[in-house]
Each structure stands twice: as C-alpha cells, then as structure tokens.
C-alpha cells in the first residue's frame, strides 16, 4: 500500500475536489491542470535526469525555457500569415517550425553550456549552484540584449484558438493540444527509457554511475546527450508555454524555474515518473485552488511541496541512495 500511495495520489486529488464544484467546472479545470502539468513536465524532465545521472544541479535550467519561448516569438513573428491562415496545415507547420527552432536552439545552447560551465564543476554542489546561477544571470542578460526588455506578444495558430464543448464543459483547444503533445512526449520518453539499450543505461546510471562505467559504458558522453535532450525539451516546454500565455517577458524562465523546482522536489530528484506525477500535481493544484480559493492560489504550490516533504522527505519517488 505504502509503495503504491504515490501512484494513487493523482487520481485521489482529482476525485477529492469533485464534490466542491460542478462537473463541467471540474472537467474544464482538470484539463487546464493537466495541460499546465504536461508543459511543466517537458520543462522539468531534463533537470531531473541530469541530476540523476551525474549528480549535477543546474540552476540555469530556466534559461533554456526562456530561450525556447523567445525563439517561438522570433519564428512565429515572420510567419503571421501562416499562423492566422485558414489552412490548418499552414497553422501546424508554423507551430512545428516554432517548436523545432526552440528545441534546436535550446539544445545547442545546452551543449555549449555543458562544455563551458558544467563540465568543470562535477562533484561540487556548491560550485555547481554558484556557476549555474552565474550562467543564468548572464544568459538572462543576453536574452534581454538580443530581444529587448519589453514584453513581446505572440499569436496562437488559428485552429488552436478558441474552445469547444465537451460534456457541457468549455475546453480551450490549446489546452487539449498541450495535453496531447505532453502525452506523446511522455510516451516517447517512457519507451526510450524502458525499451532501448540507451534507456537501460540511463536508468542504471541514475542508480549507480560507477558501476555502469565499470561495465564499459561511457557515461560522460551519455550525460552530454541527456543534457542536450533535456535542454531541448525545456526549450519546447518554453515555446509551448509562451504560446499558451500569448505574451512573454524575460522573467518567464525564472518564474517557471520555481515551479520546475517544486515539481522535481515533489517527485524525487532523479525520477522521471516522479517528475511526471509532480508536474501533474502542481498543474492541477494551481487550477483547482485558483478556482476554489483564488486568494490561496499563490501559496498552493509551496503548501503542496511542504506537505509532500513532510510526508515523504525525499519526494514521492526517491531514487537510489542519494
């Protein structure tokens, strides 16, 4: 029972709030919460794997989120024609271009960041925190220097605007799309981790890096790959979040970093399943509490984190001996 508890938490939370609202509100809020959770999962998964594999705590992770968001703006700006076109094919093409550009830019930035900063501070958490915070400051300033400090608007593709009715609930189309994309990425990641040799090595490496190396696997190289993939995912998450918000400011990464940290702490640093559950919990809590008690909304995530840490000091899905 105790081992299953973390898995049951999510449905339990969903059911627990049901009596306090109408079915249609519940459905709308649940979709909104899951959508937010999916985007948070994209942003957080890289961070948790990077920690699990190499014990590296990257405070600059939010920089990749910001970069992804700004890339989306820059790509969608010139594509306004496609974005607002009647043709759904052009719509989706524009979206795909934005997401791809965000993934590539964040991935390349991640590669550089790993080579320049992270590689030199393996093993020292104090130095890692300081260096990555320094890197975050510089990255944030560079983004402002390139894109300017003012908030930038961007438009959702025409087919993803608006909403539709589902069992009497008004569901925003974009949220449904975000849930779909998130599920696809999660399924893909799950398959990669559980069905391939690389995934096997990553899972083993998260548990005991030395032994994996003693079995002949070059974990450092693998780590660079995971770091780049994690940065790219953060970029995609940032791009999707930007389109969801339709307005971005340079502080977007910083704001999301806080939520991402809460997600990985709740889930247990290093665990992908934990990250997924944590992301959904944070997304749902934000929406349910925002509806039931708007005044408490801003504290809901912190309260959630504290409650879970008191219950499980190492998060829902603790990994290895760390």
């Amino acid at each position: 029972m105790n081992r299953l508890a973390p898995y049951l938490l999510l449905p339990a939370v969903m059911l627990a709030v049901m009596p306090f609202m109408s079915h249609s509100s519940w459905l709308a809020l649940t979709v909104a919460g899951l959508a937010m959770g999916m985007m948070l999962f994209l942003m957080a998964s890289g961070l948790t794997l990077v920690f699990g594999l190499m014990d590296v705590l990257n405070f600059a992770h939010g920089g990749f989120i910001t970069l992804g968001a700004y890339l989306a703006v820059s790509v969608l700006g010139p594509l306004t024609g496609w974005v607002s076109s009647e043709s759904w094919a052009l719509n989706l093409l524009a979206l795909l271009a934005a997401v791809l550009a965000a993934a590539i830019a964040s991935g390349v930035a991640g590669l550089a960041f790993e080579a320049i900063l992270i590689r030199r501070v393996y093993g020292s958490h104090l130095q890692q925190i300081l260096i990555t915070v320094g890197g975050l400051i510089v990255a944030g300033e560079l983004i402002v220097a390139l894109w300017g400090p003012q908030p930038l608007p961007l438009a959702k593709p025409a087919i993803l605007r608006g909403s539709f009715l589902l069992f009497g609930a008004t569901i925003e189309t974009y949220r449904m799309a975000a849930v779909a994309v998130g599920l696809v990425v999660y399924a893909g990641m799950h398959a990669l981790l559980n069905r391939t040799r690389i995934g096997l090595v990553v899972r083993a490496g998260v548990e005991n890096r030395e032994m994996v190396e003693a079995l002949g696997y070059r974990v450092r190289r693998l780590f660079v790959g995971v770091f780049v993939a994690g940065s790219a995912l953060a970029g995609i998450g940032g791009a999707m979040w930007a389109e969801y918000q339709e307005l971005i400011t340079p502080s977007i990464g910083g704001e999301m970093t806080i939520l991402v940290f809460i997600v990985v702490i709740i889930g247990g640093l290093g665990s992908v399943s934990g990250c997924f559950t944590g992301a959904m919990l944070v997304g749902l809590a934000a929406n349910y509490v925002g509806f039931l008690a708007p005044k408490l909304a801003l504290g809901s995530n912190i309260a959630l984190m504290v409650a879970i840490l008191l219950w499980r000091p190492r998060g829902l899905f603790p990994v290895g001996g760390k």
Binding site: H125, I129, I258, L298, I302, L309, P313, R314
Partner: peptide, 23 residues
Amino acid sequence: LSLRVQRLFFSMITMAVASFAQI
C-alpha cells in the same frame, strides 16, 4: 524543514520560498 529532508533541496526550497514572499 529543508536541512532535515535533503541537503540538496535546501537551495531549491529557499528559492521557492523567496519567490513566494515576493508575490
């Protein structure tokens, strides 16, 4: 709270708390 749970969480938790205070 945070030194009890896991040393590493401390920095992350303080960051979350600080942003909460700002809000």
